[in-house]
Amino acid sequence: MAEVLVYVDHVDGAVRKPTLELLTLARRIGEPVAVALGNGAGDTAATLAEHGAVKVLTHEAAEYADYLVVPKVDALQAAHEAVSPAAVLVPSSAEGKEIAARLALRIGSGIITDAVDLEAGDEGPVATQSVFAASFTTKSRVSKGTPVITVKPNSAAVEPAPAAGAVEALSVSFSAQATGTKVTGRTPRESTGRPELTEAAIVVSGGRGVNGAENFAIIEALADSLGAAVGASRAAVDAGWYPHTNQVGQTGKSVSPQLYIASGISGAIQHRAGMQTSKTIVAINKDAEAPIFDLVDYGVVGDLFDVVPALTEEIKTRKG
């Protein structure tokens, strides 16, 4: 059976959920061979094996943290040469897309970004994409070279599928470009204790209607009652009420949770671009004409300062 390379997104050996989703999709096309790089690469093997990786290619080197993107491209290219896979799958983060694109160019392949689904097809893997702020769905293929495809978080279920997960050291020689862009400092993001925005099953977002940084406590309380991540519209972020890392939309994160709750958000096209593929959408807005109501499964026309705390209370009561 053909092998499929899966690029592993991990933090010091802890595999992030989108990579496990990729393993589910990779199994539809062939046998997943994972590529884990940098500090802790070897520690990823057990988790990857549990989720279907037949092999885990690892390489640790300081270059992966000290220089931007290119060392990872060099390594993935080495893995591509070693394995001759049927496809290369990469998580659709900002960095993932850059790595994938440069790899595709080097190996003479086409690239598809931000797939939301993937199936085997007669002429290679078929990727589903959601375009124009999710108003269209397309099916595409890579028609030249080894398909390189980046896949958005929450595009498939994580499924246990025990496999060998044999660890093999990947041999990588870095290119002249590898050390071109130096990382001179790094400030890790502080953990809020809440789920990662792009990976969360439930996202609770606030917009301009929240009207102040301090009022975001109401949104956070609702999120915590549901075990959700917190999102924000660009208007709320630009006002300085919530960090940019939490922005949902075209220039923020694109989310596709089971449940999205928008409070005090009008539903501008650029916001919809980042949340329209959510399974269930709920909105609270005092303007009955707000465009967000065109998307909702359930909407409450009302003041968020009344509705959100009441909802949080009711959820707490029901959960006991």
């Binding site: 293929r141 030249k144 499964d297 359930y298 026309v301």
Partner: peptide
Amino acid sequence: GAYTTVDNAAERPARTAGTIVKD
């Protein structure tokens, strides 16, 4: 010369109208 082929593009079906209540 493209390295990718779009086989199909379909407008996403409009979401079925949800329930909207007034608080």
